[in-house]
Computed example of a mutant assay.
Amino acid sequence: MSIAQDPRMEYFLNLKDWKKNTRRKYIADIGLYVECIGKTPSELISEARKEQVATDWMDERQIPRYFKKFINFLDDKKHSKYSQKLTVANVKTFYRCFEIETPSISVKGVPESYYILYEDLPQHEDIRKVISLSNAQYRALFSFMASSGMNYSDATSISVRELILAVNYYFKITKQEKYKVKDLAGLYETCEKVKGIVPVWRMWRFKTSNQHITFSSPESLNFILDYFMEQPPANEEVPIFRKFKKQKKLTYRAVNVYLQKLNEKLGWQDKKIGRFGFVTSKSFRTFFANEMEDEEVFEKHIRLMMGHKQAGVTQNYFKTKAPKMLKSYLEGVHRLTFLEEITVIDNTDDLLLELEKRNEERDEEMKQLRKDLDRALQLKGMESDLNDE
């Protein structure tokens, strides 16, 4: 019987709407633990519950010994310290789901990428080579990921309809709503007339379910339209980036196999970032972050564009205006452009001045309201005094 069919494991896996890869990771990690200890998930939970009722003292139970044995087991299997840290944490999560106390034993470790220097990462010229050698489909995808900071999951989940909405949102915040697009045919026509369009994406990150705003370069928009000419979408509801001659989402495996071939073609098969290839699907998001930071774009804006969660109070109360973020993005977009001359019209200063003017007018209105209210209260007080007399 597969451990996923064990009653306790089945309960654990159905407790939350786990993402597919998270589910697989839990099954794999708890599978290793079961292999090491030699008991089923149900047997482990039953034993731990009995011991927890029988004694308050952790050192009198089997579970600390199991964890120590498990860490040695992972060591023997040559798992890195960081991998061990994540695996042990997942086993603890499984136990805690059944209200079992877990020992304070932990493994210290950081990912291999923690020690990688900026100079070791793919630079602008490297990404340019990858994009220039790619076919229309992957040229569009890679330039889009590099210029938006989106990861594979987010980028390949976007529909054609969302592209139209992103272009219209750009026209809205730049006060060019006369160019508003209704459909894909209108998008082609508008992009012929208006140059330097920067799509504005209102996104929910697939990984964290965190809402954020980001942007993509005019170049990547042109590449997407070139790709559509070769592989037209069946309708506006299908993903932008699709399997060859199909209308389904491009798979993670297909992207990585394509990148692996490009790495070999460019002679990078021996260049590694930790255990991984030189340019992987993650490289584009890392490139975005480093290029924008190197351009000295406001760090908070970079984090917002990448969909990183802000600290509690900051997330709840402090919201950044889209025109302000667009202005920050335009400061660095030239570093996210690879094969085209950049043509972007930046009228964000005018927009921000208009917003400031509105705020000042609102402040004046509030001052006048306060004066009127104070005057009304004074009159009411005088009237009350006269009535008392």
Rank of each mutant, 00 (worst) to 15 (best):
T174F: 10
V167H: 02
V333G: 02
P111L: 14
L373Y: 12
E299Q: 13
L377M: 11
H124F: 10
G332Q: 05
K16I: 06
S328R: 03
P111I: 14
N387I: 14
T156N: 00
K69E: 15
Q315N: 10
A289T: 13
T40H: 01
D372I: 07
F278G: 04
L15C: 08
E364F: 13
D388Y: 13
T337K: 03
R253P: 01
D75S: 13
K182E: 15
R23L: 06
S209F: 12
T280Q: 04
E162D: 11
E189V: 06
P122N: 10
F223A: 04
F278M: 08
G267K: 05
E291V: 11
V34N: 02
E43Q: 12
D126L: 13
N151Y: 00
F318K: 02
E10F: 12
Q231V: 10
D183L: 09
A234P: 03
K245M: 14
V130Q: 02
Q378P: 00
F144I: 06
F223I: 00
D374S: 08
V257R: 02
Q231W: 12
K50Y: 05
R275D: 15
N387G: 00
V297E: 05
D126G: 12
L330E: 09
D17M: 11
L386E: 11
D294M: 10
I273F: 01
K108F: 02
F206A: 07
G38A: 03
L221N: 09
R303Y: 12
A28Y: 14
D372H: 10
